[in-house]
Design a protein around this nucleic acid. Structure first.
Lengths: 212, 212
DNA sequence: GTCTATAGTTAGATAGAC
DNA sequence: GTCTATCTAACTATAGAC
């Protein structure tokens, strides 16, 4: 996760901060707690990052920049759409699972400062409308292989199915499994395959299949 | 939203608090800001609710209790499963749309205090495994009308598709629509119908259709 | 670069008048 | 019940020694 040439101390701070911010959000996080997690003291945090807000900004940008390329890479690969969906779902759920704080971290940030995100998106040069994925999707719709669906709707459906169950872990674990952690983990594990099939079945055009 | 016999002041406080808590979360919320929104002063908040935590608890419980019965009612209705999904999706997206803070509010709460939720769920007597919906689902699977799927997976899929796009409004609005609010609203509007069809197509057993 | 000590600020909570 | 004024605690941020 930490990639640039930081000193050992900087790395420890970034890691500790990421953990604290995603657990507690910007306002809930405590500089003291970050310092403790990093095994240093408060003053050093300010020495490196001046203020809580600056530190947050740094951590946020790093996280964001580490995710975007991975997503883009998969989406723009030259492979069959259904295969792409399978790979994307599995990779993405694994990614979130390994750092379940990330989505919450980003969502925390968003509600308080939506502008920051748009700057970063613009900077990353993301544009769904002009993506190779859209072209691929439109061709399959035109040929009748899949049902008509807007790329935005498809993307948001896939993202919802991958992200929400993990972000809302306490809800699903409690409401669906009476707090059974193991059952919940099994469910997530299953979803690495089942979500892709769910999506594929949802968009596959069955009329077309009958013709082949 | 406010239903019991509260005084006018209490109502104003509850409404203001709900707004503030869902915008900022528990830690980000300010008693001063709640007082301002309610048009009273800080001291009065403490007069009525003793502490910030108590106030939060009251607001949270009220919200939770207002949602559960509505969800249960739809899910246990004696109607066709596909029709049930259509009604549920439309009602649920409308509900969240009218109070988009609710999911964030609940999720904020969850990360900080998962136990509170389980108490409330237990209290509400929710149990998916024993619900009429599960029976209905299992029958349709047995008869081959829909593909095998666990009720928990189906529920979490539907909830994800309804809740996430609204909770993650800033993400989707920015990433998918370059910040165009109107385009985003249109997308949500479409989803009131399209999500149900997406889910139905995903679970419908096409082999069975061919047989009929 | 890293620490201890402390200054400065904010915000939750209480006391007491009306 | 509602207000103003105030206390106290928590937390961010800085100063200054090593």
């Amino acid at each position: 996760m930490v990639n640039e040439n930081f000193t050992a101390t900087e790395q420890k701070i970034i890691e500790a901060a990421q953990l604290e911010f995603s657990e507690k959000g910007l306002s809930g996080a405590r500089m003291q707690s970050i310092a403790d997690k990093a095994g240093i003291n408060k003053a050093l945090l300010h020495y490196y990052y001046r203020s809580k807000d600056k530190l947050f900004e740094v951590v946020f940008k790093m996280l964001f920049r580490s995710i975007i390329p991975r997503v883009e890479e998969i989406l723009n690969k030259e492979i069959d759409l259904f295969e792409k969906i399978r790979i994307f779902v599995e990779t993405y759920i694994n990614l979130i699972q390994s750092s379940p704080q990330i989505p919450m971290f980003i969502m925390h940030e968003l509600s308080s400062n939506p502008k920051r995100l748009s700057q970063m998106v613009a900077l990353a040069g993301l544009n769904v409308e002009k993506s190779p994925l859209k072209k691929q999707l439109d061709e399959l719709i035109a040929s009748g292989k899949i049902r008509p669906i807007e790329i935005e709707q498809l993307m948001i459906n896939i993202l919802s199915l991958c992200i929400f169950p993990i972000v809302a872990k306490p809800i699903s674990m409690t409401v669906l499994y009476n707090g059974d952690e193991k059952a919940y983990q099994q469910m997530i594990e299953m979803r690495k395959k089942s979500v892709a099939e769910f999506v594929i079945n949802a968009i596959k055009n069955t009329d077309y299949e009958e013709l082949t």
